[in-house]
């Protein structure tokens, strides 16, 4: 496949690999995040990379989807970051997904699904039985994606309060 195939709706599976993030992916991850959020956060991603891709890798997962043949100049099509957290508010250890994005031009083509499956497999291999995430109510894109992957409202409710001056 080539860059010219962006309008296609075919699932990208041939030649796509899901692997752990490498330092050389960082510039593409920062660019993808900036494209989606319109804010460039190189320092944030450097820190995330150091914490989640270089240490305690048995419980921290920073995965990227790469398709060299499909997009040779920008092969990172998406990423997902998560970790195993335990005993927060009495919760048994569970998998947490806290960052996830797919290149807008390749959405609905199986990239996110493969990333989600891969991190699910990593959590399962680590003996984890459930996974969680937190999504803004208005973020229908992520809400719809996680729902389509079988995630439902969990046993915790997120609460917040505006702090007075």
């Amino acid at each position: 496949m080539t860059d010219h195939d962006h309008s296609s709706s075919a699932v990208i599976s041939e030649g796509m690999t899901i692997r752990r993030a490498k330092a050389s992916d960082l510039s593409q991850i920062v660019a993808l995040d900036e494209k989606v959020t319109t804010i460039a956060k190189p320092d944030y991603w450097q820190d995330i990379f150091e914490r989640y891709a270089t240490r305690r890798l048995d419980e921290r997962m920073f995965l990227v989807a790469e398709a060299q043949e499909y997009k040779p100049d920008f092969p990172v099509l998406g990423y997902i970051v998560g970790e195993i957290r335990g005993w927060e508010f009495g919760s048994e250890p569970c998998g947490w997904i806290f960052a996830f994005s797919v290149e807008p031009g390749t959405r609905e083509r199986g990239v996110g699904e493969k990333l989600f499956e891969a991190i699910s497999d990593e959590f399962k291999a680590a003996g984890i039985r459930s996974m969680r995430t937190m999504v803004a109510r208005q973020n229908q894109l992520h809400m719809a994606f996680f729902r389509s992957e079988g995630m439902v409202a969990g046993t915790y409710i997120q609460l917040e309060k505006e702090l007075d001056d």
């Binding site: 109510r137 208005q138 229908q140 809400m143 719809a144 729902r147 389509s148 079988g150 409202a153």
Partner: peptide, 22 residues
């Protein structure tokens, strides 16, 4: 109501078909 709408607004017919299969 906001929470209910956010939930209902995130579940597509395709997701319902997957849920039925599961």
């Amino acid at each position: 109501n906001d929470i209910a709408n956010a939930t209902l607004g995130s579940i597509t017919l395709a997701t319902m078909l997957k849920q039925i299969e599961r």
